[in-house]
Simulated scan of single mutants.
Amino acid sequence: MSRYHRTFSVVICVYTEDRWQDILAAVESVRAQSLPALETLLVVDHNPALLNRLIEEFTELRTRGEEVRVLANAGPRGLSAGRNTGIAAARGEFVAFLDDDAVAERDWLRYFAESYDDPRVMAVGGRTRPAWASGRRPAWFPEEFDWVVGCTYRGLPHGRVPVRNVLGGNASFRRSAFDATGGFATGIGRDGDKRPLGCEETELCIRLGRALPDAVLLIDDRAVIHHKVPAGRERFRYFRTRTYAEGLSKALVSHSVGSAKGLETERRYTTRVLPAGVARGLRDALLGRPGGAGRAGAIVTGVATAAAGYAMASVRTRSGVAFSHGPIAAYAPGAEGGTP
């Protein structure tokens, strides 16, 4: 099949009316793609008011033949179940995911499609750039920790290269990848709680590699989205909270797939990328450049809080952990609850 005739379903999971304008911007960026999407699926996470408002907003588009469908999350509250709901409803050969507070560049889907020329490629992610609310990166905020705000971070390889896992807010998968894995695990990642957990895509990608040993997962730098970073996430307090939550999430992933795979990429990151970042920050401080000492201190703090979260969750998971995965069919629209 020609890459230009490949069909993409784009899933955008949403949960709050506070992001109304962001949601509209995300949908508009999909509608403007150089390779048109087959459909855009907005999955609403247990918010009836937002669900009804979106249905009303996009009814006119559907009458004009433009496929923007609004669905209720058919599983338990959370991002993983929302994504599984979208997967179950998707009609495309490929399923792409876009954050609800991000906009995709015009050729986003086209670059994804190019990578699927190789039939072994089961997932392709892109580059996510931060759009800071203040207009510029805080001087103390290290690029090595841009994952804290959902963006591509220093230390990831450049170009179009194989990776262990893609990042969920800017990613695509063959539909068959979910047939092989059963979809995203619940109990890992965000679930409506205030604690900013993550790693659900990491756990899925590791299981995908085990289910299909010849599978190739790629990141393509050209598939770019711009992710909004609100003012509250530019603060050091959020940085500490998010890094601690990442430690919790990594412990759940390691419990699921084993620490060898669960921490494979993180070992290189903590032994090579982060020490280089500390050294760079200290050098900048000695040269009188703004924020150098702050960046070095933030890296050290981030490592410490992530380690604390990992240790805490590891102790708790010794007596069992509440997450699961299973058939995507459990999330077909209209299904009552259930665990995938």
Rank of each mutant, 00 (worst) to 15 (best):
T301W: 13
S172P: 04
A322W: 06
F145W: 08
G302V: 05
T271D: 10
L35I: 06
G182C: 03
T301R: 14
D107T: 02
A330I: 08
G198F: 14
R160E: 11
R283Y: 07
R19P: 04
W20H: 09
T59M: 02
D214Y: 03
S324V: 13
A335Y: 01
R154I: 00
A306T: 15
G125F: 00
T301N: 04
A313L: 04
P230Y: 11
R242S: 11
A329I: 04
S319M: 14
R289L: 13
E143P: 10
E203Q: 15
G338F: 01
Y116E: 05
A90L: 06
V10E: 05
T7C: 00
A26L: 02
A131D: 12
V149Y: 11
L79I: 15
I87M: 00
A113E: 06
A322Q: 12
D214T: 09
A177D: 03
G209V: 04
G187L: 00
E56G: 11
T181G: 03
D100F: 01
A335G: 08
L274G: 05
T16G: 13
E105H: 13
D221R: 02
I23H: 00
D214W: 01
N84Y: 00
V27E: 15
Y331D: 09
G262F: 00
D117C: 03
P162E: 15
R272P: 01
G297T: 05
E93V: 06
I219G: 08
L282Y: 13
D118N: 15
L109M: 13
S29N: 10
E246L: 12
P157F: 00
L38C: 00
A308P: 11
G168P: 05
V14H: 05
R318S: 06
T265F: 04
A26P: 12
L286Y: 04
A276V: 08
A81F: 13
E28H: 12
G320R: 02
P196R: 01
C151T: 09
H46F: 07
A37D: 03
R174V: 01
D101C: 00
T271F: 02
A133V: 04
M122T: 07
G288D: 02
N165G: 11
L204C: 07
T265H: 10
E56Y: 03
Y4F: 13
P196K: 09
R195P: 05
D221W: 00
I299G: 06
R64K: 15
N52M: 07
W147P: 02
D107Q: 08
G337Y: 01
R175K: 15
Y116L: 06
G82W: 01
R289S: 07
G159K: 09
L24S: 08
R233L: 04
G135Y: 13
A307R: 13
